[in-house]
Each structure stands twice: as C-alpha cells, then as structure tokens.
C-alpha cells in the first residue's frame, strides 16, 4: 500500500497552479506560431486528395478526408480557441477543443507520407492542461494541487521520453544492437541530404561524426534521469538539451522547437507572476517619488494631478 502511495505521489506531486496558468498562455500562443511555421502545410496539402493516406487515428475515429473547407475551418477554430485558452478563460472547453483540433491538424500534416516526431510532448501538454480546470487568479494563483502536479509531470515525462524512445528506436532499427546506429554513417547521410550550415565543415571528418553519434545516443538513452533531478542539476540538464537542439539546428537545420518549449514544464514559472508584480510596484513607487519631488519644487497645484494612479 505504501508503494502504491509513493507511485501516486510521484505521478501527482503537489505543485503550484500558477505554473500551469503561465504554461497555458505560452503553449496556446505557441500553437498559433507552430501552425504558421512548423505544421503549416495541412491547408495546401488538402488540395491533393490523391496523396492522402490516413493514419490509424484518422481511420479509427472515421475522420473525413481533408478538404479545403475542412482545413480552413480547423484553422479558424484553432485560432479562436487558442486565444481564449491562452487567457485562461474556459480552460476545459477551449483547451479541450484546441487539444482535439490541433491533434487532428497535425495528423493531417503527417498523412501525406512524412511523419515527424517533434510534437509528442506538445500534443501531450495540450491534452493534460485542460484537466487542471479553472485556476482562480490565474498567474496570481497561490494555490497548489496534485491536479497541476500531474499535468506538469505528464509533460515532463513526454519531453524526456522524446529522447529516450528515440534511442530505443535506434536500437530496434539497428537489429536490436547498441552499436549499429552510433557506428553508422547516419550523420554523413543527413548532412549530404541537408547541405546547409555547420554540417558541411564536418563532412571530411567521419570519425568526428561517429563520436558525436555516440555522444548523442548516450545522452538520449540516459535522458530519463532528468525526471529525478532538482535545482542546479536540473538547470544544467535543461541547458545541455537546449544546447543540443541549437547544435542540431546549426548543423542540419533540424529544429525541435515544439519539444524545446515543453522544457518550460520543469521551470519554476510560478515565480513569474510575483516578479512581474514586484517590477510593476517598484516602477509605480519610483514614479510616485518623482512626482512628489517635482511637486515639492513647484508648490503650485497641478491640474488633474489626482488622476495619476487613482487607485493607490
């Protein structure tokens, strides 16, 4: 029974709800960016019904094949609901619609032959964020809950699993061998096919590329450890993985932005609200001080002066 309880408290740590409120704003706004920069092809692709090959999820739910009216409708629904959900208004309804609509939108983008793997954590995040429900005071909330903790833990697991599962897939595709992927010519292959950026300088050095393959494979395989890190160690891990993404971007033009942004689920975003309030308060105080000094030098009543900071 105590083991069950400790499993429970691992999956449902009690964490600040304001962190979820901030994440909602960031993630729902990011979805809008994502639809214009990353999964931006569902509308043009829906003009080519002859190339559509539905994924299992689309077959199971009998989703209609994409057409121009359908993808345009999805687009409009997503825009509206993302803005509403980003403001933490109607989080269950608006967030639920975004989760379903964005999953469909992304599935359409992957139903024409190419499936990407950088959206796992974001899709998980969109499905778990609404489950926290209404957060009174939003960013200013001082409440903590297991509901918030579970949503955050799910996103954290999805981020770390994006790396860990890709290492497992490498072992599987290499005939269940640990060495076949790190010893292969995969990076050379990737650079020849994407001949931009930093990668070209590395083409003449296959030994260095093998070393990099071993390094990234080891990092991916051990990424699960991050779930148990705290404080500075956690910060170091986050910085390491951000560096990893910047490096693959510079070398191969491959970004994992939807995964990278989900690292925010590890960050103490609950400090953002009080910090912003502090900044605003100190700015107000210094303005009042300046106003006070000025009026001391000019002992003449200033018209409409009372309008300044009427609330204070």
């Amino acid at each position: 029974m105590s083991m069950l309880r400790s499993v429970g408290s691992w999956f449902l740590p009690v964490l600040p709800e304001s962190r979820v409120a901030v994440l909602r704003t960031v993630f729902y706004l990011f979805v809008i960016i994502d639809m214009h920069l990353f999964v931006r092809d569902p509308i043009p692709l829906s003009r080519h019904p002859e190339l559509y090959r539905p994924l299992m999820i689309e077959r199971v739910f009998h989703l209609p094949p994409p057409s121009l009216p359908l993808t345009l409708t999805l687009y409009v629904i997503l825009m509206v609901c993302c803005l509403v959900a980003a403001a933490n208004i109607m989080p269950r309804l608006a967030g639920g619609v975004v989760a379903a609509a964005f999953t469909w939108w992304t599935a359409i983008g992957m139903s024409y032959g190419k499936v990407d793997h950088d959206h796992l954590a974001l899709v998980v995040a969109l499905w778990v964020l609404p489950t926290v429900g209404v957060i009174a005071d939003r960013w200013r909330s001082t409440e903590r809950s297991a509901q918030a903790g579970w949503a955050l833990k799910c996103i954290q697991i999805a981020v770390v699993f994006t790396y860990f599962l890709s290492a497992l897939t490498k072992i599987r595709s290499g005939g269940w061998s640990i060495t076949s992927w790190p010893e292969s010519s995969i990076l050379l292959w990737a650079i020849v096919r994407r001949p931009h950026g930093l990668g070209q300088f590395l083409l003449p050095h296959p030994e260095l590329l093998h070393l990099m393959q071993w390094f990234s494979f080891t990092a991916e395989l051990t990424a699960v450890v991050v779930l148990w890190l705290r404080g500075r160690a956690l910060l170091a891990a986050a910085v390491f993985w951000m560096g990893f993404h910047v490096f693959t971007l510079a070398m191969l033009y491959i970004h994992f932005a939807p995964t990278a942004i989900c690292w925010l689920a590890f960050a103490p975003l609950e400090r953002l609200g009080p910090w912003l309030r502090g900044v605003r308060a100190s700015r107000r105080a210094s303005r009042r001080q300046r106003a006070g000094r000025r009026s001391a030098r000019h002992p003449v009543p200033v018209l409409r002066d009372q309008a300044v900071d009427g609330g204070g």
Partner: peptide, 20 residues
C-alpha cells in the same frame, strides 16, 4: 509511424552502411 502520435520516434533512427 501509422500509430502516430504514439509511434516510434524514428527520425534519423536508421543505420546507413559505410557504402550506402
């Protein structure tokens, strides 16, 4: 890949040979 979003994370996960 058919079972996206819970499919294998197979981007760049294969192992090209030295003479591919």
């Amino acid at each position: 890949d058919d079972v996206w979003p819970v499919g294998p994370l197979s981007q760049y996960a294969f192992s090209p040979a030295k003479d591919t």
